[in-house]
């Protein structure tokens, strides 16, 4: 196989979120993979309850809680936090581009209008702007993860 083609495949891989590419041409084949093993590839089934974009957190603890935090203290602490939920189906990104720093991290203070993340669907990029001033209590989704309509993305502890 042409070395230029292989170089191009590597560039393609680097440019994407794909972990491994295998190409077969006649009897030749080449497999290019990143250092890390490929993660499970299935989309997690997520129940998409249609709901208002921002709403108070329900009492039950989320499965994303930090280790050690008891359900009681969590419920109490999150009672005042607001959820930021996905306004549409798509892929969630924490940064503007693969090389850029995340828009926000847990513990950051954000103002109304600050960008928290981006959701891409059909090449529409929806910038998730904060509708609250406060501290980012938790980020509930990973970078480049598929999200459903209404899926919680962030917990913000309003301040001020």
């Amino acid at each position: 196989m042409d070395i230029r083609k292989i170089r191009r495949l590597i560039e393609l891989l680097e440019d994407s979120d794909v972990n491994e590419i295998e190409i077969r041409e006649g009897e030749e084949s080449v497999r290019i993979s990143r250092g890390a093993p490929a993660p499970p590839t299935a989309y997690p089934p997520y129940p998409p309850p249609p709901q208002a974009p921002t709403q108070p957190t329900p009492q039950e603890p989320t499965p994303h809680g930090p280790p050690g935090a008891g359900p009681a203290s969590q419920g109490e602490a999150e009672e005042t936090a607001v959820k930021v939920v996905a306004p549409m189906v798509g892929t969630f990104y924490r940064a503007a581009s693969p090389e850029a720093e995340p828009f926000v991290n847990e513990g950051d203070f954000v103002h109304i209008g600050d960008t928290l993340g981006v959701i891409e669907a059909m090449k529409l990029f929806n910038e998730i702007e904060s509708e609250h001033s406060g501290r980012i209590k938790r980020i509930l989704v990973e970078n480049a993860q598929p999200v459903e309509y209404g899926e919680p993305l962030f917990l913000i502890e309003p301040e001020g």
Partner: peptide
């Protein structure tokens, strides 16, 4: 190519 950007959540 077409690049569509939406800004905001409730009323983008």
């Amino acid at each position: 190519g077409i690049l569509v950007e939406a800004i905001g959540i409730s009323s983008p």
